[in-house]
Design a protein around this nucleic acid. Structure first.
Lengths: 239, 239
DNA sequence: CGGCAGTTTGATGTTACTCAATTTAAGTGG
DNA sequence: CCACTTAAATTGAGTAACATCAAACTGCCG
């Protein structure tokens, strides 16, 4: 991993938790050098390792990554995809070792904060606490939805759910151009998130394509029939 | 639901988060009547409803329950089983409406705390905060393990995993008599936790029985070969 | 112009689902 | 305590959904 200081203008500063973490109210505080470190990594690089002890809280500030667990025989379960502004895992602020692995899906930039200092700032600011709790709540909701998908929904519903979920997150982050999205997630990633094979994902995608619902190719996702996608994939409806 | 005050001697007071929540250090504080309410419910009764707005934080203090989400067409995904001392959901302390449903598996006793007062006590005690954070971390770990099981493990591994997980929790709570456990979870519950059918669960259980690993019948679970169960079900190994 | 990773498609296999019948256990009221 | 009722567990046969395997195809990059 390259230890340059490239991301001076890290976009993540604008977003809720990270923005508050580095906010003005802390300027006068113990702002020692090294409490915030910037790094970059290339597509495919591993940027956090399961069981690794770390004094850092990692935040993705540019690009995409995925957070997963790998069984010793190679089976992989992806928990979620990280987009700019996302903390790797909210609870990891209070855990000395990672319980997951993270791989970059694109070129990425990361900010690494010192865990002790993050905790100190949390203890000093009620509004920062509130934002952290919102992050935890989001992660719990996402995990619950994925569990429902994995346990009780068909392959078609699962793929619909995941694409819908990601499209909503991208829109919320302003990563959309109309209904067209940069989408660096390939079919094995989708498969390993949804508990199916990449061939099955491919078949579901071509089914969607044939029905004019969406098009996913060459790293771009375009949604033509959002209503239909919701009918298939909404976490609260059936198909 | 019966609103009696039967569980004066609620066992849960001994346990970490609840013990701290009602601990001595708070005696002198605003201990108004009604901040803590006791209830009972019969087996099968619904004790919390998805989307229900509630000012209460619920804790199970006797018996078993299960927390789940139900799709509109009846498919059910169980997230976890609640044992004495368990809070229904740690993050629900900060959410005004339930994002899950809870059914009693046995006769149960519940303590309902006023949410506002729980939050106030959390804000006053760093050690209480720490305990709440431990609860969240446990829930996240459990959810991650279940996602791996649902997404990437075989039916046999899933059943092995769940039984192992529950046996460990029961042991930790002192609910074991040697290797024999009271076990009010039926095969449909196991199925709806693990994303398989109850018939499939039945076949996996008889497979385990034939191999002399365990016996599950008449509301009791007995484990004969713990090592083999671990080989099959450990969240970090393969079979 | 290769070489490579990812996608697509088809043929075949397997796991777990569905449906149905039977057995066992758990209540319930007399 | 026993007859009766009902829910849960068990077993088997047939099936569907998805996995596996293999081959061809596409787009991308140096």
């Amino acid at each position: 991993m390259d230890h340059s200081s490239l991301c001076e203008m890290c976009l993540h500063r604008r977003w809720s938790f990270c923005g508050a973490l580095v906010g003005k109210s802390f300027e006068q505080l113990n702002n020692q050098k090294g409490w915030e470190q910037h790094r970059t990594a290339r597509s495919g690089e591993r940027v956090a390792n399961c069981d690794q002890v770390s004094e850092e809280v990692l935040v993705l500030c540019k690009g995409w990554a995925c957070r997963f667990f790998m069984l010793p025989d190679g089976r992989r379960q992806i928990f979620n995809f990280l987009m700019p502004g996302d903390i790797f895992s909210a609870i990891s602020v209070f855990q000395e070792r990672f319980s997951f692995t993270v791989d970059a899906l694109t070129e990425i930039q990361i900010t690494a904060f010192q865990r002790t200092e993050v905790k100190r700032r949390l203890s000093l600011s009620a509004s920062l606490w509130a934002k952290w709790i919102d992050l935890v709540a989001d992660e719990v909701r996402t995990a619950d939805e994925l569990m429902v998908a994995l346990g009780r929904r068909t392959a078609e519903e699962r793929v619909g759910y995941l694409l819908l979920h990601l499209v909503r997150r991208m829109s919320a982050k302003g990563l959309a151009d109309k209904h067209r999205y940069r989408f660096p997630v390939n079919q094995s990633h989708i498969a390993d998130t949804l508990g199916i094979t990449s061939e099955c994902v491919c078949r579901m995608l071509s089914r969607f394509r044939r029905r004019g619902i969406l098009e996913l190719s060459n790293g771009y996702l375009e949604v033509f029939d959002f209503d239909e996608l919701e009918r298939i994939g909404s976490p609260r409806r059936w198909s």
